[in-house]
Design a protein around this nucleic acid. Structure first.
Lengths: 275, 275
DNA sequence: GAGATCTGTTGACACAGATCAAAACCAACG
DNA sequence: CGTTGGTTTTGATCTGTGTCAACAGATCTC
């Protein structure tokens, strides 16, 4: 597959112009546009967060949920297309998605974009780094919120609960890695249908973990992005979706995929499942 | 690609019989067969370790290098085929490879094996977990040594240098994730040649980081494993290697690949490179 | 050293999916 | 309401790689 070139050119400029040139990642950048937007929300205790069960906070002692340390705060609201960070930015923070969806991607020297992940509530973004800098870029695909875990601030808080947080973080990253591995596994399969089915199943599992419906999969990403992520062409994906639509396995619309025959779909994905 | 079935059946029994039925992962298992084998080596300070520059120890304050805490110790010598851990074992430790090569893999319900990674000195193994258990299995492909970082022991050492270690670990895992991401990127490409070239380039980079020759790539893994890892059939890999051999780009032998035209190879891999 | 077994190579063929091209659909806008 | 620009679908063709099968080499055993 030859990736579609310079997709992000259409997205990034709009984005940057709209909200912020320098994202919330500069070492002294804890007072970001996002944080300002968040206002009161920044002090909202985790105990009221709808995603607390899948968040790193869930792995902390219960008492800790009522406090919001300086290094862990709500980062405000992102609009579709807003940039969270770019590849090459110093990796001083990791982010926990609270709501909405982000995509991560890299762009090579030729300007081709590669979508490396879609991230929903409970996911960590920014835990892939090289030489202390992000490898991926991250943008919101829909209205989204997240919490910023500032690693440098955390570093200066060794006395507090930071040790427990770091431990929880290592565990959380391990789970994140598991999801990436599942996708890597799917990509190593040659059948496009299998890759797509594996994506749907994996996505559905994530939604279940969030107490959401396993058969209604919102797809705020474009078909182009999804095809790119799944390692196939736009046309192949389109054909595939049409086929599964006709077969009654799914009912795909512009902004979502409804899974009509979950067992059927799971059977398609099974050969690559990693459990 | 339909993965070759039950490859590991041939490997695991032999392995287990040879060295240890219960690997060094039981919660109270710090005194393992490996540790015993290691003997004096377990107390050898990191400052003499040949891989200290790529190890997590490199990210600690210099003074720390001279001490070997209880939760970080040399785990002895592994012979080819020896099992480090299995998918499903409690993920109480992460391992730093010192020498040799390990492969990680998963086996699905149908008994198909999927190779998920090859790991050389400086790599971390065991940082992919689900519900506190390893997702992958890990076996040595050649004579190998590693250090065990016991997370539960680390947990009880909050007073010591454990905080710094955890921080370093998060950074190290981020680098590890970068390598996995690079491979994921390669897998999302449909061209077998590109995937193979990307593997060689990435592998060469790793060797350079270890101050080893970038053009001599030892391949202790079988062709089957390598093809599996690269998401192609054994036959495709074989043909590809033959082709590149004839073209003079590489000179492949049973146990190594010599890169004759690095720039040529890099050009093949470039479209998927992530920087 | 001869046979058996495992691993890797080469060949012929078919098919899934890439590619190129065009049409249909959708949302935004004047 | 028609135009415009972008996105998705459908169609026709071609190529790469999977599949099946036979062969060659290496390794092991007795």
């Amino acid at each position: 597959m030859k990736p579609s070139s310079v997709i992000s050119e259409a997205v990034l400029p709009r984005t940057v112009a709209r909200q912020h040139e320098a994202p919330c990642l500069s070492p002294a950048g804890r007072e970001t546009p996002h944080a300002k937007q968040a206002g009161e929300a920044g002090r909202e205790p985790c105990s009221q967060c709808p995603t607390r069960h899948v968040c790193i906070a869930a792995k902390l002692p219960a008492g800790r949920l009522t406090e919001i340390p300086a290094w862990f705060r709500v980062s405000g609201v992102f609009a579709p297309g807003d940039v969270l960070f770019r590849a090459g930015d110093p990796a001083v923070s990791q982010f926990h998605v609270r709501s909405g969806m982000f995509k991560t991607f890299v762009i090579n020297a030729q300007g081709d974009e590669f979508v490396t992940g879609f991230h929903v509530a409970g996911d960590i973004i920014g835990c892939v780094a090289k030489a202390g800098r992000y490898v991926e870029s991250a943008v919101a695909l829909e209205t989204a919120t997240l919490c910023e875990l500032n690693l440098t601030a955390l570093q200066n808080d060794a006395g507090g609960g930071a040790f427990a947080v770091l431990q929880a973080l290592v565990g959380q990253i391990a789970e994140q890695a598991q999801r990436r591995l599942a996708h890597q596994l799917a990509l190593s399969q040659t059948s496009a249908q299998l890759r797509f089915a594996a994506f749907c199943v994996s996505y559905a599992e994530r939604l279940v973990a969030l107490n959401r419906c396993a058969t209604y999969l919102p797809t705020p990403m474009s078909r182009t992005d999804l095809a790119n992520y799944l390692g196939m062409t736009l046309e192949s994906l389109s054909r595939l979706v049409s086929k599964l639509n006709c077969a009654g396995v799914i009912a795909a619309a512009r902004d979502h995929i409804e899974v009509c025959q979950p067992r059927q779909l799971a059977a398609m994905a099974r050969p690559a499942s990693c459990e």
